[in-house]
């Protein structure tokens, strides 16, 4: 990552629903690394005001859990124009936040979504499952390197 780029990392999810807390857990681990130029936010869900923060950074990486991505994690680049119709805008998808940053604040922020594969989203509790924990460690290793000065994010291809 270019040292002069301001990077925003947003981890979100519900830590009370087991593996749904993977995004937050990953963000906490990245925050602890104190990587220069990288700001970390942790929240339950994305909302319209996040567009203002996103617009103030060159790069944003959204961290979430997912049930369907290939393990250990999946990284994709976001298209701000692909903001989908929301049945409720009390919360937004990453594309929606990026779209608002572009349309409202005229920000050319580059966006990525990193989804850590989880398995248990049904129980109530704050324990991440064993397999998901291994995926989390792999994501920490990858992001820690990619966000360092000189590192880079490489979107993955579906099926890769």
């Amino acid at each position: 990552m270019s040292p002069d780029k301001k990077v925003l990392v947003i981890g979100y999810g519900n830590p009370s629903r087991c593996d749904d807390g993977l995004g937050m857990a990953l963000a906490e681990r990245i925050r602890a690394l104190e990587i220069p130029g990288v700001t970390v936010q942790i929240k339950y869900q994305l909302n319209v005001e996040d567009a203002d923060d996103v617009a103030k950074h060159e790069v944003v990486v959204f961290l979430d859990a997912c049930l369907c991505a290939p393990p250990p994690f999946f990284l994709r680049e976001l298209d701000a124009r692909a903001g989908t119709l929301e049945f409720t805008t009390h919360s937004l998808a990453p594309e929606g936040v990026l779209g608002l940053a572009k349309d409202v604040f005229h920000a050319p922020t580059q966006g990525y979504a990193l989804a850590v594969r989880g398995y248990d989203f049904h129980d109530v509790g704050d324990d991440i499952s064993k397999d998901a924990q291994a995926n989390l460690e792999a994501a920490v290793t990858y992001l820690a390197e990619a966000l360092q000065p000189g590192g880079s994010l490489h979107p993955m291809e579906v099926g890769a």
């Binding site: 997912c66 991505a69 998808a93 989804a115």
Partner: peptide, 10 residues
């Protein structure tokens, strides 16, 4: 019926 697109293929 409108359903929300999953954020990350959840």
């Amino acid at each position: 019926i409108k359903s929300r697109e999953p954020v990350t293929s959840r």
